[in-house]
Write a protein that binds this DNA or RNA. Structure first.
Lengths: 356, 356
DNA sequence: ATGCGCAGGTAACGCGCGTTACCTATCTGG
DNA sequence: CCAGATAGGTAACGCGCGTTACCTGCGCAT
């Protein structure tokens, strides 16, 4: 499989960039004319004929504009920067994806800078500052700052030099606009789905109760129950570590505590990893999903939700959408428009699969 | 939660970049002197005193070099580009992460371009070409081309204008250097682990037998068995769809076909998703992992392997390492060094968890 | 006094392009 | 026949910086 031939690689004589001047000469016009044609200037008066000659020259010579030079002259880089933990979080990717696509539509480029520690505290802060610094050196016109889980963050000072939007987090200092998931609405829709399926006794496997995700989702759950004239039994809310093991243990506790009659008929797991563990606990007890116990998750971690058996019905975190909205907001901001709100909530859609 | 205050955003008067000239004036020297100091020029003769004055001016004014202008003047952008499907694959991220980190070490920037369809065939080819085009407009000095699963690809022509390295795929046209996982060695180590644990009858849940991953891993498995004086029973190799469902079905087939005595005592699943399905089949039959049946996977998809119960022992695909190696290879290439081989194999380490 | 080397700088060009000011030839209306 | 508009361009500056060539004193040996 491994060949040992030494590669002489692209002998392709790396031609020293064709410039606009070359194009101009080839077409027998001035460089200015070329510039006008390439940038589709409105009020330029260039005859159709020369325009065609120029375009042909571009083709023939394989001219490719030099983005750097263009940025220098026009004072606009056409770039946005995004700072985020790349790999720590499977989520970050979807945000990037959404932002990337939107940027692409706007004919902009997204410069992605790593930040292994997106918190402004901690040992790696230097890294993050350096990343932002690098982005600013590239003269990005705006900054996106994305976190891997919904929380408050402290954004480095330097981010103030350029319009900045936070994604999946909010400014603990309250200055910068942010885009976050509507956790409350998500919690509500999850429980509404269970109610609609006829469940009245619903167990909740909770996260660390202090984080925004837990607060919001639980509040939403309460609202949905209240609408149905029910209350959330505090006994049925058990905290768990945000892992599969945590979900397993919490589910065991909740399942073993009651007789078959009193047992909840549905479990709302505040994230999919915990749902994964809950599945095990349920199956271990010879119970069927969703026959005996329905399960609904949160987050829509594809790798889990779509591969569990039965596939997990869950509420999706709208990462791509938030990414796209981030870029849009940035675009508005850089265009000088006032933004609508300091915090934009993005809905979390229910994803029907087979566990309810 | 959602405030509706209208944000006036960073009133921070976007100061029109401090330039080297400003620094020079402030320090009472010429711009050249500043340039010399900032670029740590070897044979420049600048007194310690003026050097200090200049550095102070940089601090005071908050000077930040303009990367674009620098690139223009020096004819070196300091950028590499990477083309990959960003989100389709959870894998791509790790490659990017590895490449990003290595690039960061080399004081280079990684420009990430989306390519929703990394295959050179298909409807989205235009997108990919455009992405490469954009990267070249940014004057990247080298190109990385990463695939989400190990396979042969056709790289667009334009990539030839600049040194290019393929990651997790190889050039079907055989020109470009590539970096791929050593599937064979990986398959070998997996089976060796099972043999070491005393297993003699090993079932294999296979992938699509035509892809490099299947070919290599299976070959490695055979080698390991041969070393132990055993042969791979063709009956024990069952093909499956590369999903949890596929793994479930294949495992059912293999488990139900034999009596308890003839049944394999271990399952080598050629990817983790299938292992996930196999878990269900095994548990359903009241069998214990690894007590009754040991399971070993491949890929090390964190979200699955680390969260299954028991945690899955698996062979890791070295994505980060491949990414880093890609950048290193590119660096060597751009420095004009001949590369070692057209294809570099990267080892797949065994990750011990609890399923063997 | 002269020559010479060296520390400590500076002037000026060019990188590739956007953009503004200006110029010329041709047509049109009065 | 001439003023004025318009089509079809061009010359030249500046964006911020790297880099090369050159300049100016000053100490020192001749």
């Amino acid at each position: 499989m491994a060949k040992t031939t030494t590669s002489n690689h692209a002998g392709a004589a790396r031609q020293r960039g064709v410039t606009m001047n070359d194009v101009a000469k080839h077409a027998g016009v001035s460089r200015t004319a070329v510039s006008f044609v390439l940038s589709n200037r409105e009020n330029a008066s260039i005859s159709e004929e020369t325009r065609a000659r120029i375009n042909e020259a571009v083709q023939v010579l394989g001219y490719r504009p030099n983005a750097g030079a263009r940025a220098l002259a026009s004072q606009r880089s056409g770039w946005y920067g995004i700072v985020t933990e790349i790999v720590t979080a499977p989520f970050a990717v979807d945000i990037i994806k959404g932002a990337q696509d939107q940027a692409w539509l706007d004919r902009r480029f997204l410069l992605i800078a790593p930040s292994d520690q997106a918190d402004a505290v901690g040992p790696n802060q230097g890294m993050e500052d350096a990343a932002i610094e690098k982005l600013l050196e590239q003269r990005v016109e705006g900054l996106l700052y994305a976190a891997t889980y919904h929380r408050g963050v402290h954004v480095p000072e330097s981010a103030n030099e350029v319009p900045t939007v936070l994604i999946n987090c909010f400014d603990a200092d309250g200055r910068l606009p942010s885009i976050v998931p509507d956790e409350r609405a998500g919690g509500r829709v999850a429980v509404e789905r269970l109610l609609q399926a006829g469940h009245r006794r619903i167990g909740v496997i909770n996260l660390d109760p202090d984080i925004p995700a837990a607060v919001g989702r639980l509040a939403g759950a309460r609202e949905a129950l209240a609408d149905a004239g029910l209350e959330l039994d505090p006994q049925l809310v058990v905290p768990g570590h945000a892992t599969a093991d945590g979900g397993y243990e919490a589910a065991c506790e909740i399942l073993d505590r009651y007789t078959e009659k009193d047992r909840p008929t549905a479990l709302f797991c505040l994230n999919d990893r915990m749902a994964m563990g809950a599945y095990d606990a349920i199956k271990e007890r010879g119970l069927a999903i969703p026959g005996d116990i329905a399960v609904i998750g949160f987050d829509n971690q594809e790798l889990i939700a779509a591969y569990l058996r039965p596939k997990l019905t869950t509420v999706a975190l709208p990462f791509e959408k938030m990414g796209a909205l981030g870029v849009q907001t940035l675009a508005a901001l850089t265009a000088g428009q006032p933004i609508i709100a300091d915090q934009q909530l993005v809905g979390c859609p229910l994803l029907e699969r087979s566990s309810v």
